[in-house]
Design a protein around this nucleic acid. Sequence first.
DNA 1: CTGAAAGCGCTTACAG
DNA 2: CTGAAAGCGCTTACAG
Lengths: 330, 330
Amino acid sequence: MSMKTVSNVINGYAHVAEGTKERVLAAVETVGYRPNLSARNLARGRSGVIALVVPRLEMPYFAGLAGQLIEQAEARGWFVLIHETGWDRMAERAAIEGQFPQRIDGLIVSAQQLERADLDQRTATTPLVLLGERSFGDAVHHVAIDNTAAARTAVEHLIERGCRRIAMVGASDAAADDPRRRGYLEALEAAGLELQPDLMLPIRANSGEEGERVVRELLESDVALPDGVFAVTDWVALGAMRALHLHGLRVPDDAAVVGFDDIPYARAVTPSLTTIAPDRAALAEVALRMLETQLNPAGGLAEPVHQTVPFELVVRESTTSFGPPQSRAH
Amino acid sequence: MSMKTVSNVINGYAHVAEGTKERVLAAVETVGYRPNLSARNLARGRSGVIALVVPRLEMPYFAGLAGQLIEQAEARGWFVLIHETGWDRMAERAAIEGQFPQRIDGLIVSAQQLERADLDQRTATTPLVLLGERSFGDAVHHVAIDNTAAARTAVEHLIERGCRRIAMVGASDAAADDPRRRGYLEALEAAGLELQPDLMLPIRANSGEEGERVVRELLESDVALPDGVFAVTDWVALGAMRALHLHGLRVPDDAAVVGFDDIPYARAVTPSLTTIAPDRAALAEVALRMLETQLNPAGGLAEPVHQTVPFELVVRESTTSFGPPQSRAH
DNA sequence: CTGAAAGCGCTTACAG
DNA sequence: CTGAAAGCGCTTACAG
């Protein structure tokens, strides 16, 4: 039996006779052979490592995504180096240039601040896949849920629950092309509700503090109270709920709240939070497939592709019902 | 200039004349040289990879810890492979045996279910460091905060706020040697408070659901209401707060609550959660140092060591004051 | 189809 | 101190 045959079996190539294959695998098993990846990667000219770039791993949405990606990457023999940017545009620019302590075979970047111009100026040629709601035309491979459709679904849900004055927390100031804002507007329009500019609340960061601040300011202003809140992330929604509470408003009775991301706390908080749940597993899988496409340009053009994955509206107490009994239950 | 000299500079060894050193570094800079770690590791007989084993990366406490560890490991030229066990004892046993798709140089395991016996049966010789509150005698390198002192601090804080009937949520059933339970008992005793066995509430998992369940059962029972709750994790505390809410009790006015871990949600939730914050950076650093000690047994015995790192009590609204104003503020 | 051999980019023991 | 050379464990092009 040749070395080539053994290699074929181990790497799953070619057609090896069943009996031979079994003998090889049996030998591998008894010896406890485990390929030395350093050697393999050195010989193949690859590092076997892909980088996942996120703002902050501690944020549950990104941690969940990282978990999915690690699992699926391992199954493909890849190893995931996680790198944090802290929402800094310069750090994101550095990341897409592949400035890592390790050589890497590919990059998956959750873009928060990155602009189209940053991509155009990119000099590195490492295969790249972008994640997230920002859009970059056809400059780069990109996976995301359909953020407009998801936002529309969220706001339609509020409208169905009877909300008529729905605030959007996290309307980006400038961006007419913010997909979530567009979904919000579409839902209002489809229901024949008038847009209230006072209820579109821009924030400086997708943080709980910011969500709380702008909702508090709204409630303390002369603007009539909202009866529904659509927040661009669950984290922002938690802040919004906090402001509502502190103002003596009950969720969902006085104002219903919908978030975005379905982080674990959405379930644990009181009242639990209705939210948009992206299909994280699909996100991870598509991103890895896009990386593979770029690494093996078998079959011609590896034109940048934009692809969407499914999402789901998860309905919980913040839009249905909840409340401590007035008298104690027994 | 010899290859050895260059190697010395790059790896920071030995005494190289300043001028030479600068010339080398300048050359490295202009050429943009980056060592190929696959080759280096192959030559050195190491993989350059350490594994971090946690129950679930999506849990914010572990995600935060992983973030710290990744950062500090990168600074030491290590790469972190994250592996999830899902709180499964068999998965933890497999992990300490080093059954990974990669060869690894060391293992850092957050032990949740692992028993002393599992360690005694271990056959692998990969350097190992254990994290977490379980104790394993002197069988293995181990880093943790002083959980007894931390729990005592938390409960003393409740007592200072005037609590007299303090429930402990998460008292492990069997374990007389549970360090957090011991801290709870010590604090009660020091304050001359009588132990109320009815207020020690065992749970099956450190989940919000379990925290909610046992507190709900307590509140619905004939036992007099508690005026303070010490939960073994923030996550459990969130569940406990939920049960209190649903029962019409206000936090902290009717019952104050203290958690453990200082996950990000502890700040975001309403009311925000008083909790014990372990020094994660120190945890990561000590764990890595212990791994290095085992890898470079320079200076003799690498006897297993148990080491503690600092913690802090972070006081927030759940033990001080909070409440929506009765009439709206203006 | 088979096997011996070169080469991936480093580190390090060794002869000069 | 210096430099040439071997070797880490794989993959793969190449001659048989």
